[in-house]
Design a protein around this nucleic acid. Structure first.
Length: 493
DNA sequence: TTTTGAGTTGTTCGA
DNA sequence: GTCGAACAACTCAAA
């Protein structure tokens, strides 16, 4: 019987379990497969979704459509509530089963539960290499610390045992099923969408091209060199599967010749496991989207100054490295990982703005914006999450800038006002004398802002605010503890 | 149950 | 300039 391949965040034909299952059912009955994408208004209109990721998605759908045409099929796009659309397509086509890749974010879980109750929806693994819940402690409960999670994850890694699934050679799709025309798209030039582009980038990275997995341990922290894999947007929408990434990395590991090269491969695999870890955390603790994972940091007295937030969003904090990073994000839909930590720390600790504001802004602008990883990252920086950075770890935006962009290449690339500022002054332009500012054609306060807040002052203020939050919650917790102990005593009496 | 070892990514201070 | 310690104790995971 005809089967529906319901595409969500698996925009690829290769190594796609949902597609493979749909084809298997259809072939057994000499019937067709309907590759269906549903434009869900709930997601498209969400405040956590921005235009850039939608453009990347639409570009990916167009590319998928081309690949399907070459195989005798095509993409069917419909707009509306997924349950209603699926019911409609099933009625039109006589399809008897829906195959989709399981998605573990709270909205998707609730949506799929609603649909499973009404329709024959079969969910298969794929967002992560290992289905969340697979990696558990001996007593069955989930890990909340990364390192033991990773130690347990590695021997269970499926990449070496199960071969990748081939992309189907031919697919037949019933002619009668109508499709909407895709909305027109804007280009995402830094990240050409689609499975082919993803595969080309993975191959180059893992075979040791200019930007290479073998150098990753040494170069990954340098936003000026930008030698990371830049695969996160592709993993986000499943133009690449995490298993494909893992298999390629492990093959590179086999070819590594020096300890440094092996370290690069291991570190990159580690990053893939961080991705798995945060999906697992969100799966087991969906409440982290709304609240601090650690209850003792639930009551931080945020300042939440709207003008300062606006300055941060637009890259006008007066700290060149921070501003370069935010402009890279809003221009390209991507930000270097080192820069993400620095700007996040600046928002949360220097400005004392609620991490959820930053989380939402990142989701609106990042092509790779993923509920699990983004939330995990923000809670890590804020010190509120699983296995988080300690609260007294406050990144110094000047030190980080000197260390990871020593020549100011990254800064000058994204903050043209500072193009002619000499390197010694590039990290702290406000310290230039009037004549130096004139020579650099950059007067701080007019051409480029002065710092929003002085570092030492902001650091002290953050430490005091966090400490106060801890003291507050610990006080109430010990009251609660005392109450509990009293209750228990009463019962035993 | 108790004990033990360990914990992504930093900064500052003082010797 | 370089180095180690303090930051603040805490929780997790496993033996």
């Amino acid at each position: 019987m005809t089967a529906i391949w319901w595409i969500r965040r698996d925009l690829r034909l290769a190594d796609n379990r949902a597609l493979t299952e749909a084809v298997r059912q259809a072939d057994a009955a000499k019937a067709g497969v309907i590759p269906l994408f549903v434009l869900d208004p709930v997601l498209l209109d969400s405040v956590y979704v921005g235009q850039k990721r939608i453009d990347f998605l639409v570009g990916g759908l167009a590319s998928l459509h081309e690949s399907l045409l070459q195989r005798g099929s095509r993409l069917v796009v419909r707009r509306g509530d997924p349950l209603a659309v699926l019911q409609q397509v099933m009625a039109e086509s006589g399809a008897t089963a829906i195959y989709a890749q399981a998605d573990h974010s709270p909205y998707a879980v609730q949506r799929d539960a609603r649909i499973s109750a009404a329709l024959p929806l079969h969910l298969v693994a794929g967002v992560t290499a290992l289905l969340p819940g697979t990696v558990a402690k001996a007593d069955g409960t989930p890990y909340t610390v990364f390192t033991p999670f990773k130690k347990r994850w590695l021997p269970l890694s499926p990449a070496s045992r199960e071969p990748l699934l081939p992309s189907p050679a031919r697919l037949s799709t019933p002619e009668s099923i109508a499709s909407e025309v895709l909305p027109s798209l804007a280009d995402t030039p830094s990240f050409p969408p689609g499975e082919e582009a993803a595969w080309a980038r993975l191959t180059a990275f893992t075979q040791g091209a200019d930007v290479s997995i073998f150098d990753y341990a040494n170069t990954r922290n340098r936003p000026d060199w930008d030698d990371t894999s830049r695969l996160s947007p592709y993993l986000r929408l499943g133009m690449l599967s995490p298993r494909q990434a893992l298999v390629a990395a492990q093959a590179a590991g086999q070819r590594a010749e020096t300890p440094a090269q092996r370290a690069g491969v291991e570190m990159w695999i580690s990053e893939l496991i961080w991705r798995e870890f945060f999906v697992s955390i969100l799966h087991h603790f969906p409440g982290v989207r709304r609240a601090s994972f650690r209850p003792d940091y639930a009551e931080i007295d945020w300042r939440n100054d709207r003008d300062e937030f606006a300055a941060w969003c637009t890259g006008r904090t007066g700290y060149p490295f921070v501003d370069a990073a935010l402009r890279q994000l809003t221009t390209t839909g991507w930000m270097h990982n080192r820069a993400r930590m620095v700007v996040a720390s600046f928002l949360v600790k220097h400005l004392l703005i609620d991490w959820r504001w930053g989380e939402r802004f990142f989701m609106q602008h990042l092509l790779d914006g993923d509920p699990a990883a983004n939330n995990g990252g923000w809670q890590w920086v804020a010190g509120t999450g699983t296995d988080a950075a300690p609260y007294f770890r406050v990144f110094n935006p000047i030190t980080q800038s000197r260390k990871f962009d020593p020549d100011g290449v990254y800064i000058r690339r994204w903050v043209p006002e500072l193009a002619d500022v000499p390197t010694p002054a590039i990290h702290t332009p406000w310290k230039m004398s009037a004549s130096e500012q004139a020579r650099a054609d950059c007067h701080t306060g007019t051409d480029y802002p002065n710092p929003l807040v002085e570092h030492a002052f902001a650091r002290q203020r953050a430490l005091e605010t966090y400490k106060a939050a801890l003291n507050r919650t610990r006080a109430t917790q010990s009251h609660r503890g005392a109450d509990l102990r009293r209750e228990t005593q009463m019962k035993s009496v």
